[in-house]
């Protein structure tokens, strides 16, 4: 009994530093945010007045909230499936015995290593009205497309950029998963007369399910929280015409431009709830727990 208690103490003492950090920097702020979202808070002076659920009512009445909602969901619905599928297919291709696959892997990994802000600046340079892409399209098709100040296209530039930079990361995750699939499954499939495509669909994809769940979840969380690219591309405004206004960017604007921490925490709570619910649904749908990985 005594030795067990001592072992417990030992365990907790090892955990203590990490637990303290989590407590101070994660749990207490979350609890505080729960508290703040029922108040009108002046961040500068710290003055606050209780207004109940008024912050939520204000948000529902706010066209910018709905714009950020629309943008974020549009972003997630495009980026997550595309990045997952592309990463999986690329991983499968690299896992087959093509020549120089290591070299390809290295080159393709570079975008992930680049910081997202540097990446955004590069994309802004490519896509501005006098940029390489615009001039290229002009020469080939004879139309000038204003990517960055056209509200229908500005978000697409960020989407492309995010897919470009996250695919390599998820690709390596898939690659490691692929190497765990027993060769015997493929042999059995070959004996049954499956071609390469059938093998991919009926062996690789189901076997990768736990990895896919991880990739989709991380993709969802990352996409729902998209901030830096939207911030840089629009200079923090979320423009043109709110087309790059995402949840996180609007939280930032509410807290620091509108000096309204209450509404910002209310929106953060909504974002947290959305991520939780969507992840839960995806978990049920992909049946991540049941697959024998």
């Amino acid at each position: 009994m005594g030795s067990k208690r001592l072992q417990n103490i030992q365990g907790y003492s090892f955990l203590l530093p990490a637990m303290l950090v989590i407590l101070v920097f994660t749990l207490i702020p979350i609890a505080y945010a729960f508290f703040m979202m029922f108040f009108k808070v002046d961040l500068l002076s710290g003055a606050r007045t209780f207004i109940g659920l008024n912050n939520f009512a204000k948000l529902l009445d706010d066209p910018k909230f709905w714009a950020s909602c629309r943008n974020t969901f549009r972003y997630v619905l495009f980026v997550v499936p595309i990045q997952t599928i592309v990463a999986m297919v690329l991983a499968a291709l690299l896992n087959s015995k093509v020549k120089f696959n290591r070299a390809f892997l290295t080159i393709m990994f570079i975008p992930t290593l680049t910081s997202s802000s540097a990446m955004t600046l590069i994309f802004m340079w490519l896509f501005n009205n006098n940029g390489v892409m615009v001039n290229l399209i002009d020469q080939v098709f004879g139309v000038r497309i204003a990517f960055l100040n056209n509200p229908d296209l500005a978000l697409s530039v960020i989407m492309m950029m995010n897919i470009f930079s996250t695919v390599p990361h998820f690709m390596t995750v898939f690659l490691s998963g692929l190497q765990d699939i027993p060769e015997s499954l493929y042999e059995a499939a070959s004996l049954d007369g499956a071609n390469a495509f059938r093998k991919f669909m009926n062996v690789t994809v189901p076997q990768l399910m736990p990895i896919t769940f991880y990739v989709v979840t991380m993709g969802l969380v990352g996409c729902f929280q998209i901030f830096d690219q939207a911030f840089i591309i629009s200079d923090g405004t979320g423009g043109p015409q709110n087309s790059t206004l995402t949840f996180s960017l609007y939280i930032y604007q509410l807290a620091f431009n509108s000096n309204d921490m209450g509404r910002a925490t209310a929106l953060a709570f909504i974002l947290g709830a959305i991520i939780f619910i969507v992840t839960y649904i995806v978990n049920k749908w992909l049946k991540a727990d049941e697959v024998n990985g």
């Binding site: 204003a146 100040n149 509200p151 405004t237 015409q241």
Partner: peptide
């Protein structure tokens, strides 16, 4: 203002 004027420019 900045946000909406861009719509006019577009």
């Amino acid at each position: 203002f900045d946000n909406q004027l861009l719509a006019a420019f577009n």
